[in-house]
């Protein structure tokens, strides 16, 4: 899957970017569940101050989903963090082995 220009600007590959620039960033692992399309590149590094809703929007844009569909993010098979939660806090609570494992699925939320 080719990366879109905006995704390159926003998220960067953990392997290809220099470590010094990347030191403060948080490594997240994205897992698809349910009927959502898979993103081939699973590991991303993210600015710790980005919010959960920012990641939701990113995946939504990346997969070019319909506006009526919504991306849901959750951790530990059970818990969906609040959209305004920042990744730093989430990592401090749920990070394992230097990574934050996030699951995502999509569905229509209403109607």
């Amino acid at each position: 899957m080719a990366e879109t220009p905006e995704s390159q600007a926003a998220l960067s590959t953990s392997s290809s970017t220099p470590a010094d620039k990347d030191g403060s960033k948080i490594c997240i692992l994205l897992n698809a569940t349910g009927n959502v399309p898979i993103i081939k590149k699973r590991t991303w590094t993210v600015d710790p101050n980005k919010t959960v809703s920012w990641i939701q929007k990113f995946i939504h844009k990346f997969l070019k989903l319909d506006a009526s569909e919504q991306i849901f993010l959750y951790v530990n098979q059970t818990f969906a963090p609040a959209p305004d939660q920042i990744i730093k806090n989430l990592y401090e609570c749920h990070g394992t082995n230097g990574k934050l494992v996030l699951y995502y699925c999509k569905n229509q939320a209403w109607g």
């Binding site: 897992n31 569940t33 349910g34 009927n35 959502v36 849901f72 959750y74 098979q77 059970t78 699951y103 699925c105 999509k106 569905n107 229509q108 939320a109 209403w110 109607g111």
Partner: peptide, 10 residues
Amino acid sequence: RTADVLKQFG
């Protein structure tokens, strides 16, 4: 839609 959404949880 609640049941649908909960079902998506892998």
